[in-house]
Design a binder for these strands. Structure first.
Lengths: 203, 203
DNA sequence: TTGACAAACTTAACAACGTTAAGTATTTTT
DNA sequence: AAAAATACTTAACGTTGTTAAGTTTGTCAA
């Protein structure tokens, strides 16, 4: 059965070749330049070959989203080493914003673009998106337990805090032009401080 | 010179015909269905006629964005009648979220989509986007003056609070599938309460 | 009123796109 | 070595945004 194993390896390799080329095109040249034909040219296959590995273009973007999530989760979970829950909470928030501003392409794929999500019918298919959200919930629970945050519905609190950082990130990514470049970082930094300290200083 | 006046009127009328058809297509059938050809068919002109009135497709979306802003600003400024600054602040936030969830298309045009903003080089061209932001800043000033909010940089505070509501709105619009439909409204309502009360109850 | 000129609009075409159907090689199985 | 399955390509369809060239319509001076 070694031959069918090799075939399966080859298939995965080809899928990765396609995905990596697509990701590279997306990150370097933006969404508009990710065309089936350009991916094909990059990997030196005919355009139609791609359809032997992916149903359509949206499925490619769905898989790119997964890749982005894996990268994102890896970075997010690094903060779990921090013992102090309030310090961990801050670090998590900072890390979120950092990832978003340093990898706007990944962030777009995960939380803004429609393409990766167009064919989803249920939230279950968003498992990769859950990992870091669950981590946030756990952090919030710790904060509440230690009385750093008032007792509230965990779901509401998690959604609120996610909204808060997502708002900052997505404003900068999609409407950054609106804010003079010199102040942009200060603004982001300041907003994070402002909102987080308002949340946790109450006790 | 009445004849050239009539011509100018006609030109504006034609522009509006194009814009209204484009907006209708956008709101009813989504971005993908706004094509030059479909707009043309709707207004019963040839596709190329549209290029006599707009430079390209992005310019149409830029103008649609302006229309969305006008509608948005009109609704937002209604809350200015409220005397009590803290009550006004809450009402403003609620009105923001309401507009976003009831007019996701408008909201997308204003604050999420790239198309309307692709050819902008400076924030000055975003005058329509400023109106309600300036109004927010004024409201924040009032709150600070009355000691309902701690003394801070107005720009940072405004950006923070905008981020906060924008986060809620854009999460629901672009990643609504992630949250079960039954709870979505409660989640949004809860988040708004949670975040706003954390901000203003300190004094 | 007519002829020149400009404005408004259309036809035809281009290059690029996503995607499918049909065909050709290549590899594996019998 | 023949048959069957796999991997890949060629050619084409129907769209898309956009431009160049042509036609019709309206305006104005003679």
């Amino acid at each position: 059965m070694s031959i069918s194993e090799r075939k399966q390896r080859d298939k995965i390799e080809m899928e990765n070749l396609i995905l990596n080329s697509a990701m590279e095109l997306f990150l370097k040249e933006g969404y508009d330049n990710v065309t089936i034909r350009k991916i094909a040219e990059k990997i030196e296959y005919s355009p139609t070959t791609i359809y032997l590995y992916f149903k359509d273009k949206d499925e490619i973007f769905f898989t790119l989203q997964k890749m982005a999530f894996r990268e994102f989760n890896k970075v997010q979970l690094k903060t779990s080493e921090i013992k102090d829950p309030i310090e961990r909470f801050f670090a998590h928030g900072k890390s979120y914003i950092n990832f978003a501003t340093e990898n706007p392409g990944y962030y777009d794929l995960m939380f803004i673009m429609n393409e990766p999500v167009r064919n989803l019918k249920s939230p279950d298919e968003w498992k990769d998106g859950m990992t870091s959200y669950d981590y946030l919930k756990q952090n919030i629970k710790d904060l509440i337990q230690m009385k750093y945050l008032p007792e509230t519905d965990i779901e509401v609190a998690a959604f609120s805090i996610w909204s808060l950082v997502h708002g900052i990130a997505s404003l900068v990514i999609r409407r950054g032009i609106f804010f003079p470049e010199e102040y942009r970082n200060q603004l982001v930094e300041g907003a994070l401080m402002y909102l987080f300290s308002n949340l946790s200083n109450k006790s």
